[in-house]
Write a protein that binds this DNA or RNA. Structure first.
Lengths: 175, 175
DNA sequence: GCCTTTTACTTGACTGGTCAAGCACCTGCG
DNA sequence: CGCAGGTGCTTGACCAGTCAAGTAAAAGGC
């Protein structure tokens, strides 16, 4: 384990082996996600959007014409983002998002995808899918889904204490 | 798959299933790492350091009295960090790092851990290890190491194009 | 019908991260 | 020895993310 080829221990030139399997896994997980993220970020970056912005645009595309209130977008993001307002500000400035106050609840601001955004997403769909495939290319689909299943358990374990169900979510699941 | 409990599809309330295993895996990977990162970040945060700063301090502890030049630290970081100089600036301002010019190569700046830093790390060792264990608690060690092995392959696949071996690394491996 | 509480953001001040350019220093090569 | 080119950082300008406090609207009492 001490500096073996292809392992994190080797890559970051660590002098001592990991104290536990969990510690090694945490480091490997964060490092791997970081690399994958860079690859995707790079693809988005070529079209002038960050990965977070891309994520928002995809969420809005999925929401369709109805649009989505600001905090609902935040709740669906892959990575938590408290700066959601400003993030969308920038997208609105670039005419990738339109906002309007919700008539039935004037506290909410409904966000909509614009045609520019849909065009941008259409351009990004293929390269993003390719970037994802490239990362998991050495693994068969079965192995890939195995990772997914294992990671789901990890998220459940740390997410349980980390991100307690919000009130909004509780309310939603009640009906 | 469409919104099943405990899966990413359910958690982020996605309306359509994923187009491919790779895309699902990418989303799951980034989301999971993000949650794990938050948990660790939170532990560090209570002692006033970011996860990146903690990583630097650990690297310097590992380096011992010899210290380590700035860019060597950057190379060993779990997440790539071009802002390494400023990151260390902040650590130096808080007296967690000492810097001095290397006498044999005056371009390099050798960074050293201070006693304050060692004390801080000693305080963080246990809670950080616990946070890591908590994330992987539902998995047996064998399953945990299975994830590590799979993720190593993913990193190799996207890292190959993403982060080509630097010249410095080539030089080092030559002797 | 008012008054508290909750929700859904928004704003301001700040910290931290990123990119590009620059400077000091070393390393060969003629 | 001098100088072209590479290395190792640092700096400045910018942008994105974070935290705390504030505002406006809805919801729920009494």
């Amino acid at each position: 384990m001490l500096g073996a080829l292809g392992t994190i221990g080797g890559e970051i030139r660590q002098t001592r082996p990991f104290a536990s399997a969990a510690e090694e896994a945490v480091v490997t997980l964060v490092a791997t996600a970081s690399r994958v993220r860079e690859g995707l970020s790079d693809v988005c970056g070529r079209r002038g959007v960050t990965l977070q912005q891309y994520n928002v645009l995809r969420i809005l595309r999925g929401a369709g014409d109805a649009g989505l209130p600001t905090l609902d977008i935040a709740a669906r993001m892959i990575e938590r983002s408290p700066g959601i307002t400003r993030l969308i500000d920038r997208l609105e400035a670039r005419r990738l998002v339109r906002r309007k106050r919700c008539p039935s609840d004037r506290r909410q601001v409904l966000c909509h995808s614009t045609n520019d955004a849909l065009r941008l997403l259409a351009e990004l769909d293929l390269p993003m899918a390719e970037a994802a495939s490239r990362c998991f290319a050495p693994l068969e689909d079965a192995r890939t889904l195995e990772i997914v299943a294992l990671l789901d358990q990890v998220r459940a374990a740390c997410g349980a204490v980390q991100r307690p169900e919000t009130l909004a979510e509780k309310t939603r699941s009640r009906h």
